[in-house]
Amino acid sequence: MSTNTAKTITFITRSTPYGHGQAKACLDMVLSAAVFEQKINFIFMDDGVWQLKKGQAPSHIDAKDLSAAFTALPLYEVNDLYVNANDLQERGLNCEELVVPVHSVQANTIAELIRESDVVFTL
């Protein structure tokens, strides 16, 4: 796939990491799109921001550590991670408590990212 024809695919994840399977399903979609060398935006909104919290130890519930996968995203050249600042704040979190560096942005920026996208997936 030539990068000249790359599409911009935006993923918006709004689910908690372990209570439901959507978060993992969304991450798998992101990784697949990355293999195709598309331009990827990965946006965390609503309860999706919990996926980024440091200190997760899901081995206690026999689950794979989702947050560990986020730290590997740069290897797939997925570098554009965004979090809705208000959603972070509402949950008492700040950027220092997150497993990876993300752009903490206002809804306006998310609106612009959607506008620049060819395809948007929400899971």
Binding site: D28, S32, V35, F36, Q38, V119
Partner: peptide, 14 residues
């Protein structure tokens, strides 16, 4: 999932 990504690239709308 590659088939979904391919479809995203090839389709007018998803």
């Amino acid at each position: 999932l590659g088939q979904l990504v391919d479809a995203s690239i090839e389709s007018d709308r998803v």
